[in-house]
Amino acid sequence: MLELKNLTVQYGAITALQDVSLRLDRGEIVTLIGGNGAGKTTTLRAISGLLKPRSGSIWYEGNDITGRPPHKLVAQGLAHCPEGRMVFANLTVLENLRMGAYLQRDRRVIEKELEFVRSLFPRLRERESQLAGTLSGGEQQMLAIGRALMSQPRCLLLDEPSLGIAPLLTQTIFEKITELNRVRGLSILLVEQNANLALAVSHRAYVIECGRILLSGPASEVKSNPQVRDAYLGGG
């Protein structure tokens, strides 16, 4: 469904990604783990069109989407829930969700999606008329995911959903992620610092370090790899 072929991205003279190739099949959760500055977020930003790659190509549902602007990709069912949540703090929760369905003109479809998001995150329903800036970090993360879902994506790029969130809420959010994958068949490319958590919900994993893919394989294999255990799983 999504494939990166030899992707290289540079910020000025600094190479952020070097020759990265990876694949996400339909119905899969694939996680990209790695340390700070390894290139995880850069990978997602290049896929969704926020960054222009230096070389290489990105394929989505059989089409070359390299360099296509983000708003066009949303229309094709590729949603990106960005790092740091980026909810519109000056808009209400409901307005944020409606903006998620910006390209959808059919009101019934919008209402149906709204109901779905409300049932997924009941907490948001209680806060609908509040400004998004007044929500807690965990609620903002729910809102960011809900907003991304409003565009009815077939593929979701999810960046650090556990960042700065209470452990209990992190648990809830990860349960919802697996639920979305199981029930809706949503394909998810997950970037996560908390490798334990990410590997537990994923089918496959890639380990990225200094802008290169170090190793990849089924989540269970990656989890038991001694190198990965030492570097990312706290030696456990």
């Binding site: 926020l50 949603a79 960005p82 519109f88 703090a89 000056n90 409606r98 903006m99 390209l103 565009s151």
Partner: peptide, 24 residues
């Protein structure tokens, strides 16, 4: 209106606005 809300969204964070499908 939809376009007015999009204006507020773009003014708050243009990157996030483009990620929900708004042509900034």
């Amino acid at each position: 209106t939809r376009i007015g809300t999009a204006m507020r969204a773009v003014s708050f964070n243009a990157t996030a606005a483009s990620l929900v499908g708004i042509d900034t």
